[in-house]
């Protein structure tokens, strides 16, 4: 799966979690860009991605991510 294909799925997850069909999500998006992205929604996002991509994250690797693009890269490495 390419980076952009993963990003497209991530965008769908974000729009679903935040209930906003027009939400713009790109590689540089981080928690300061989305008002409702708090610690609970962060858990929901991570769990949703684990289910969607059928993989498990280590909490340390998730906490080290700076933005959505890095999340997509991490998913790509795990799927490789």
């Amino acid at each position: 799966m390419t980076h952009e294909e993963i990003m497209e799925i991530i965008r769908r997850i974000f729009r679903d979690v935040f209930d906003d069909e027009d939400l713009e999500v790109n590689d540089s998006t981080n928690s300061s860009d989305i008002e409702d992205w708090d610690s609970l929604e962060h858990i929901t996002l991570v769990v949703s991605m684990e289910k969607e991509f059928d993989l498990k994250f280590d909490l340390k690797e998730v906490n080290a991510l700076a933005n959505v693009g890095e999340m997509a890269d991490l998913i790509a490495r795990k799927l490789a």
């Binding site: 858990i43 991570v46 769990v47 684990e50 289910k51 498990k56 994250f57 280590d58 909490l59 998730v62």
Partner: peptide
């Protein structure tokens, strides 16, 4: 229904 180890939920 589900267990999620990353956040113990």
């Amino acid at each position: 229904e589900e267990k999620h180890d990353s956040y113990s939920l």
